[in-house]
Design a protein around this nucleic acid. Structure first.
Length: 243
DNA sequence: TATAATGTTTGAAC
DNA sequence: AGTTCAAACATTAT
């Protein structure tokens, strides 16, 4: 479920509930559920992998972590974390982290770091990268404060596209490659969105989980990289390691 | 069936 | 005091 584009799809699916009043609320979430009862949805937003349900004066922040899921107008077998029911339908959220954030949602989020947002600012990203010169690019690209919404799949596909080795140090990567990286982080995310919408995302993976490169017929290396030891998939025999 | 995987927070340990 | 790290959370495809 997780990466940014998937949250954008969720946002589209629930759009119909905008302005609707919550008539019942339940689930095993430890938030103060009664607070939501009879409230009207002001808007649905997203920031990176955060799904935001905005009310007057507060916002529900939903993070699906690795395994979270949702259903609209249907239920799963497993216990629901939060069920939000309207007269016209329901939203069911499973195995996710839910939190209430107080006040104006805009004071909590910098929308310009979200690769899916209209306010995305490439210059900001460039500056923030520059501030982390010794980081490995595989870590920097999944930094949510720089590239909100980019996850491990997008990371691998973007690095494959621009032909940069995941263990390259930020400061050693040529400016042109950095420019491409920032461009593709957003661009690929939108392609991800289209593919996911049409249930054909995996079909388009060229590096992630692959053993061979379909284009050049060379093996793809799988290696756990970076400070969080996340899977990286990359071509070995190409230039692209900057360190 | 055991394993690994689209992720983040927390709090202990250094 | 600041950093680092493992644990916790939790589901499902392979």
């Amino acid at each position: 479920m997780p990466e940014g584009p998937s949250i954008v799809l969720l946002k589209e699916e629930v759009l119909r509930f905008t302005g609707k009043k919550i008539v019942s609320i339940s689930g095993n979430s430890k938030i103060e559920q009664s607070r939501l009862l009879n409230q009207k949805i002001v808007s649905f937003k997203s920031w990176g992998k955060h799904f935001l349900i905005c009310f007057k004066g507060f916002t529900l922040r939903v993070h699906f972590l690795m395994f979270g899921t949702y259903r609209i107008n249907e239920k799963k077998e497993q216990p629901v974390r939060l069920n939000i029911t309207f007269k016209s339908g329901e939203i069911n959220l499973y195995s996710c982290a839910i939190k209430i954030i107080e006040g104006d949602v805009n004071s909590h989020y910098d929308w310009s770091t979200d690769v899916m947002n209209d306010e995305w600012n490439a210059k900001n990203a460039k500056a923030r990268l520059k501030a982390e010169p010794t980081k490995l690019i595989c870590d920097a690209l999944i930094e949510q404060d720089i590239f909100s919404g980019v996850g491990n799949i997008i990371k691998n596909e973007v690095l494959y596209r621009i032909r940069v080795h995941p263990e390259s140090r930020v400061e050693k990567i040529p400016a042109l490659k950095i420019r491409k990286l920032i461009e593709e982080a957003r661009n690929y995310s939108f392609e991800f969105l289209d593919w996911k919408r049409n249930y054909e995302l995996k079909k388009h993976w060229l590096a992630h989980t692959k053993k061979m490169c379909l284009r050049c017929n060379l093996p793809i290396i799988k290696k756990y990289t970076g400070s969080k030891n996340r899977r990286s998939f990359f071509l070995c025999q190409l230039p692209g390691l900057y360190n």
